[in-house]
Simulated scan of single mutants.
Amino acid sequence: MITTAGLTKRFGPVVAVDGVDLAVSEGSRYGLLGPNGSGKTTLIRLLLGLIYATSGTIHIMGRPVPKRLGEILPAVGALVEGPAGYGHLSGPANLALFDAAGAGGPRRTRRTRIGTALTRVGLAGIDNRPVKSYSLGMRQRLGLAAALLRAPQLLVLDEPSNGLDPQGIREIRELLRELNAEGTTVLLSSHLLTEVEQLCTHVGVMDQGRLVLQAELGALFAPTGRVVVLTPDAETAVGLLDGQIEERHGDRLLVRHADAAELNARLVGQGLRVAEIMPERRSFEEVVLSVMAHGSDRVGP
């Protein structure tokens, strides 16, 4: 669905995107993670033709961007850097203008499309108050409704949960799952690990303009080659597994061993009681932080 090769964007001496090879497969839910300033939004703006690359290539749906962007945009819904709109107009009026500009379809079905989009994002009961009176979360929902007017094959979202309360975040997550199940490929950026972990099938991690990790989410939780053992016979286990114990906290042992079942059979065969045994797996947070040179925007000691 989306591929880039050596994609680079410089703003004077600043390299905002540095040689990125992005691969978003059709039908996936791809989460682009990274701290503020890591290059996520710049990368998304490059993909949508809002800014031009310094070097490298972009292909979306097999077509080069920006050269054939006009062929692609009717099939793409996007929300970048917060929703745009006319503050003095209502939400439905803003969507009608957006639709009339070519975002949607025939005029005769405009009202239906707008109503459907508002319902899907949780704004079905919205009145005619001006958008300038909306909360940030409501404006975010309205921006997502605008992106859905196209019935997009590809949905590109920059921090879609920004301004939403926990219930709103959950609702948008479920909506994106539904859209994906209906055939829409989703690319979203976020700095929230939990958002990406709960929603996405694939992940890319940006750090200082570089794509430092790109993988299917499930593949990141492979066993570490160590086994967690909980046993009331910890002292005996330590003696039996001399040299293989890497950590001990009371009855909890971390054992260097590749096969939990084999280790369990060995311990039980020696008469030890095993309350719990499982392969150790790194958390998503540990995986992400391990590939980042700078994990926060903190300044100073």
Rank of each mutant, 00 (worst) to 15 (best):
P66S: 09
V121P: 00
E81M: 01
G115E: 11
G27P: 02
P166F: 01
L22Y: 09
Y134K: 07
A100Y: 13
A23N: 13
L97I: 14
R139G: 02
G56T: 03
A96K: 13
R150I: 06
V76P: 03
L47F: 09
T109S: 15
K132I: 01
L69C: 03
L154Y: 05
V156I: 15
S28K: 01
L22E: 06
R120T: 05
I60A: 04
L48W: 06
R111K: 13
P152S: 09
G122K: 02
I114M: 11
P92N: 06
P160C: 13
H88M: 07
D127T: 00
R120C: 04
D165I: 12
P166L: 02
A53Y: 11
M138A: 03
R120V: 09
E71P: 02
E71Y: 08
G102L: 10
V76I: 12
Q153Y: 00
S28T: 07
I169T: 12
Y86Q: 08
I114W: 12
T57P: 02
L33Q: 02
L43T: 15
G56V: 05
R129S: 14
I51L: 11
L148T: 06
P92R: 13
P160S: 13
A100I: 08
Q167A: 14
G49H: 05
E81A: 00
G77W: 04
G77C: 03
I51Q: 07
L142R: 10
D165M: 06
R150T: 12
Q167L: 14
S133H: 12
T54L: 10
D158W: 09
V121Q: 08
N162V: 08
V121W: 10
L46K: 11
R108Y: 08
G34I: 06
E81G: 04
V80M: 05
A117D: 01
G85F: 15
V131C: 05
A53R: 13
T109A: 15
I44N: 09
R68Y: 13
T41A: 06
Y52P: 00
S90R: 03
L148S: 00
I51M: 07
Q153A: 12
V80R: 03
S28Y: 03
S25L: 11
G82N: 08
G34S: 07
K40M: 04
K67L: 12
I169Y: 07
A53S: 13
P160H: 14
R107G: 07
A96R: 15
P35N: 01
N162M: 05
T54V: 09
R113E: 10
A23D: 14
P92C: 05
D127K: 10
V80F: 11
R139A: 01
M61G: 09
G168C: 06
I60D: 04
I58P: 05
L48Q: 07
N128W: 02
P66D: 02
D158I: 00
I114T: 10
R113L: 11
L164T: 10
I72T: 09
L149S: 04
D165S: 06
L155Q: 01
S25F: 01
G37T: 11
L136N: 08
D127P: 03
G104A: 04
G102E: 10
L33P: 10
L73K: 15
A100D: 14
R68E: 15
G49C: 07
I169V: 15
T54Y: 13
G70W: 03
G105N: 10
I126E: 14
V156T: 08
A23Y: 02
V121S: 10
